[in-house]
Design a protein around this nucleic acid. Structure first.
Lengths: 242, 242
DNA sequence: CTCACTTTGTGCCTGGGTTCACAAGCGCTT
DNA sequence: AAGCGCTTGTGAACCCAGGCACAAAGTGAG
């Protein structure tokens, strides 16, 4: 969806035959499974897990079946074992070193986001072009000048880069990351990035998400051709006018 | 993809016949068009616009054709007119008032994110449960206690809510937003939210995006040798292959 | 006016993803 | 040991989306 993973050779396309849509859901399953494990639940049925993950149970079973036959008919799935298998499939058995480029508000928030560290990722380098930011400590790590980008990538063996810069410099930063050896990029800048075939880019665009919501919101309102106040007055809604 | 827009009646699904996938791309087109407009370009072909947006030109034409026949054969599209039409379709002719719940690092970054304001959205309320944050001014707006949530939603006629709280309280916040009248939610908390049918939820999950990247990264690296070094890190039940 | 050229709009085909529905398999009980 | 109930795994149908390729439609030159 985000990028176009269309390899030149069709043969390389299915390495393990796990569909892209399934890959995108595995992290959700993993989170639900981890929560169950923390609660001490040892076995879970596809129906329960599907509900927790917010998907159809048939879809969940088919997704899991791409990884192998890890369930027991009549019983369900062993939570601990499934956590292990899904983690392994996602490549989370190891810690991936990550670099964040751009430490404005967003980059700052990302560096401090606990969800990264806890799930197989380790932020190893922070760089920014602003001299005022260089030297500042963020999330226990010192911000380095952007000139050290290549060096830091090499030293820590970084394969995953996060771009949280203004859109104007995103492509330039991206190019530098790629030529330094980064092959997966998470882009928060509102720009379409051009990258070589073998580099994977995923885009997170906050304003796009809001615009999609606005579309649906408008559709709701405009469908009945009424003001928002009248919509709110539908039965079952809490009274808005205090 | 992000949420599950599964209406009970399939008939209600297409109000205007614009496919969901198209809606998701319209904001990208809009951004490219706005950039062109700023450069003073008055006419653009589907080929040029498609390149700028990073999509296939046939797809772009088909997407635009859902909105109407706004191009001129042999010439292309009028940039200004298309900006207007796409904006209108997305419901951006008006400014949507938005509330942000949770002003930790992420909420703070969101409140300061210029991309919102410039594109049809106006952040009208900030609330947080932490007493230390209440009263603090963020992006020119004062953070209010979470108790005022309902009141603020009503006063500003807010239909779109952004959740940037810890996962543990996200569902509770969501429920309150919904019962206060919010019908579109952008969720940054790493949780699956349960909402009534008519409420639209979109999810942005940073660690999920990284995990998807890790999958592809692992596939590139480990096509030959599977990493089994950290096998002992799994719960005792994984005495399988190897 | 006619012709050549350009670009849109779309019919059709292909492929991936989702869902249904059911057979296969497992454990528990009798 | 056999039967019963439960749950997985998957074949098959359906639906949405993407992309090719072309007819339709407009422009400008001669």
């Amino acid at each position: 969806m985000t990028s176009a993973p269309r390899p030149a050779s069709p043969r390389a396309a299915r390495t393990r035959g796990v569909p892209e849509a399934t890959v995108a859901r595995l992290p959700v399953y993993l989170r639900a499974l981890s929560a169950l494990a923390d609660e001490g639940v040892s076995t879970v049925s596809s129906e329960e897990l599907a509900t927790a993950a917010g998907v159809n149970s048939a879809k969940l079973r088919k997704d899991l079946s791409y990884l192998g036959s890890y369930g027991t008919r009549g019983v369900g799935y062993d939570v601990g074992y499934l956590v292990y298998q899904v983690s392994r499939e996602l490549g989370l058995s190891q810690d991936w070193p990550v670099i964040i480029v751009g430490l404005g508000h967003l980059g700052h928030a990302l560096a401090n986001y606990g969800g990264f560290v806890s799930r197989g990722f380790a932020i190893r380098a922070l760089v920014d072009a602003d001299p005022d930011l260089v030297g500042v400590e963020v999330a226990g790590l010192e911000v380095r000048p952007i000139g050290e980008l290549e060096q830091l990538v090499a030293r820590h063996g970084i394969a995953i880069g996060v771009i949280a810069t203004p859109a104007t410099v995103a492509q330039e930063v991206c190019d530098r990351l790629v030529s330094a050896g980064v092959s997966s990029i998470l882009n928060f800048a509102p720009t379409v990035l051009a990258v070589p075939e073998e580099v994977e880019v995923r885009k997170v665009d906050l304003s796009i998400e809001l615009q999609i919501l606005a579309f649906h919101e408008q559709r709701k309102v405009g469908a009945a051709h009424v003001t928002r106040e009248l919509v709110e007055a539908l039965p079952g809604r809490a009274a808005v006018s205090s």
